[in-house]
Design a binder for these strands. Sequence first.
DNA 1: TTGAAAGCGTTACCAG
DNA 2: CTGGTAACGCTTTCAA
Lengths: 355, 355
Amino acid sequence: MKPTLQTVADAVGVSRSTVSNAYGRPDQLSPELRERILTAARELGYAGPNPTARSLRRGRAGAIGVLFTDVLSYAFRDPFAVRFLQGLSLAAERHQTGLLLIPVPDDPEAARAAVRNAAVDGFCVFCVAEGHPARQAIFERGLPVVGTELLAGDPEMLAAGIDEAAATRAAGMHLTALGHRRVAIVADMLHPAISPLGTVVREPSDVSYLGESERLRGYQQAWRKAGLDWDEVTIVNVRGNSREAGVEGAAQVLDRRDRPTALVAFSDVIALGTMDALRARGLRAGRDVSVIGFDDIPQAAEAGLTTVRQPATEKGRIAGELLLDPPATAEGRRVALPTELIVRASTGPAPDGRN
Amino acid sequence: MKPTLQTVADAVGVSRSTVSNAYGRPDQLSPELRERILTAARELGYAGPNPTARSLRRGRAGAIGVLFTDVLSYAFRDPFAVRFLQGLSLAAERHQTGLLLIPVPDDPEAARAAVRNAAVDGFCVFCVAEGHPARQAIFERGLPVVGTELLAGDPEMLAAGIDEAAATRAAGMHLTALGHRRVAIVADMLHPAISPLGTVVREPSDVSYLGESERLRGYQQAWRKAGLDWDEVTIVNVRGNSREAGVEGAAQVLDRRDRPTALVAFSDVIALGTMDALRARGLRAGRDVSVIGFDDIPQAAEAGLTTVRQPATEKGRIAGELLLDPPATAEGRRVALPTELIVRASTGPAPDGRN
DNA sequence: TTGAAAGCGTTACCAG
DNA sequence: CTGGTAACGCTTTCAA
């Protein structure tokens, strides 16, 4: 039989409470008694209080739930997501808390069950589509929920986010100011969750990820303001967030006779992929075709990629803090983080005339 | 007050057991009663049995522990690690289990505490150095532990691994067969955990990650056999597992007058970085300098990188299965996965004479 | 098909 | 500084 608190207590000849204190409240007993208890525990092979029992008693699971979907594992390929996760873990560490990745089955009922069974103190909604069955289940738990979208509908929801639309609006205006009028968007997750890949989505409100939706809206606003026809903007929806996806997405627009003079991507890795595609065709980013990314990952600087910078680790850290220590006031519950357009060599004046 | 099983039971006028059965054993009560209970629960805002209490009672935490260290978050940048994690989550999903990422503080005592407090059914030791304080704490928990190193010392340890030395031995022999005699190794995690970066490690047994150690040994064996002087092999230890690290590592050897004719890396991302470095110098991989990677990530094929293929997702999946359902026999507890040397364009005959 | 009772291993409170 | 007592919320026999 596995040793328990009681086992140790009996061995030392003290009560359970005292053994418990030896672990959780060292100041409640003499150092020497504590040492005696700890030694006895070691000898008995007792590894400390059972975390589950402790959780039950304390009313604190000691973990934050993060749904692990296909989308999220794609997202992990992006340095941005990994830094966000690191930020989250920073907050978690400070609160002696873990990050529970919850594998989400495809079957809707099983997905809901997975959420209901998760022993967590709150959820971080990261990469879960608006209509996903698990999403509703999350809210039904009645636990704190944090997201990365400031505009999320649910008033209960905590958020650490940026003004996505303002960010891409600035980027879009940067391009039109440079004279670009034939533009294309290359992005992942631009389709409604259910519909097949390739579905054309043009209206921001049709996009099932709120962040992506807002980014699309930002470009729409900027370009309409500059007099461009939104229907003429090429929108390419690629599968997955990766450099390769960027290469493929760019391929769909670069080989046309009237290829765009500017490409914008919704992540730096995709943008870097489009730059690869340019290079492969002997085109130069910033001269022949301008490129803008999103996130400002370290590689963006090296590649001279113009992009929207957002504080990745900080976003995760604040999300974690909000979750683990929710502010009382409504204003405190949504934290807006700054973004900045970082102009580098990948954007330049639109080339005149035909290519 | 939050509703509990009892609340629902009282509302419907049945006993706790019946409500419990409504959730966990639908066959134990009439469908109509079950429906009545579930409806009442929904109305009361009861989201289902408390996972922590259920865990305590069942004696099953419902999670696998994975230590989240700096090293691991670096590793996430590698598609290999992400696929391993996906495999792990596949097994977890099948067992209705989560993956608990445990942020590990720098302070040794705090690190041990983090391990002791984790509510898990077992640990997956991935990217935890041999001498790390948390590592010992893991074994003290007395829970199943799985690793990716077949040769791990502890006989209790489960493992899903490959014959690392055999894998790199084959790679090393491939190079010497092509006539290479001036070779270099570029790798991450080649230093003892404690010592500062830049420490020169040459003996495999000095490397604190068993897998890395064995890979080093494989090259040592292959090259010694071919008559090379191991002391003349350049070994570059880079920080982090990334393409950039590969670029920097390669830079340390490519600009020398007697630069090596072949470079081997311990991961594909680093190898791809070294190929970037070659390109930047107008050198061609496979003609001027041969390059070998490890893992065979998708990008390797595109880049024409010769590499050692290992089944990433499968490794994770099997690790998970071993942990969640440990085999009775000692032989069953260590699963060896196959590797294969995939020869592509990045390796070719050694160029003769001086560069 | 249902219910009563006995824990699962811990921690918090309060009296000594 | 120490120890008794009472939960924490659930599942699982076992008997009705």
